[in-house]
Design a protein around this nucleic acid. Sequence first.
DNA 1: AACTACATCAACCGCCCCCGC
DNA 2: GGCGGGGGCGGTTGATGTAGT
Length: 260
Amino acid sequence: MAGGRSPCCDKTKVKKGPWSPAEDIRLVSFIQKHGHTNWRSLPKQAGLLRCGKSCRLRWINYLRPDVKRGNFTPEEEQSIIHLHATFGNKWSKIASHLPGRTDNEIKNVWNTHLKKRTLLMNNKNQTPSSSLASNEHTNQEKPSNPKATQPIATISVEDIDQQPSTPTSTISCNSSGQDKASCNYEEDESFWNMLEPQLVTDHDMLEVENWVRLLEKELELTDQDDQTKTMGEEQAVWCKISDQILSPLWPTSPTNFGLW
DNA sequence: AACTACATCAACCGCCCCCGC
DNA sequence: GGCGGGGGCGGTTGATGTAGT
């Protein structure tokens, strides 16, 4: 890097740290309308004081509608162990075998849980359990297209509810507004359909714009408020978005939400 | 109840790869 | 073929939550 390439953004003019609900909404609505052809210019176009890379990370890891939230199932954990044995620290490669899971999430799970577990196993001179071996064939070579597979796991509302709630991880598949029934959205073809590129009509655009405007108005998330709201207030606002507005719409009624 | 240590995970940083010019 | 820019990846950090004393 001698000679120095230009930094991806002006570090003095970008906001760092946890994302606020208002920023999330801005990013989601912008990507819904325009997609993400250029991450570097996206923050400026979307009116975000963020680095393009930060936007990309936020979208990929948390805001994408197909991101699976909640605890990893034992099957997923075993898959990660096996895939790590095969690929090493190639987290994106491992993630490609686990639909809905991100490399960052997998990396975290490995570093916090699975690494220790495998070390313990190795110390005890044990091979992974027989159940693990039986899972090997079912999980190791998962096609990257999740549509072509059986669901690798079923996320239940209870699973998700067990997660510590953080104000920065909220536009997610959290159907807390629903009953305690499990959320088998992966089996729902409409869920996967919404991930496919679709023709965007003017009517769709209008609906999204209206939806975002309604949200911002209802929650008083105007630009002016962005500057003045305290973090606590933002968290409260975000709980409101998550519990009252997003949850009933997403993912059970993706068509209500947007354009995918 | 207060304090400390440990665990978790979202986010940042910097390097590398790929692709277009 | 070389160069530059953008995107992607992996390592690391720091804030926050939780358990233990």
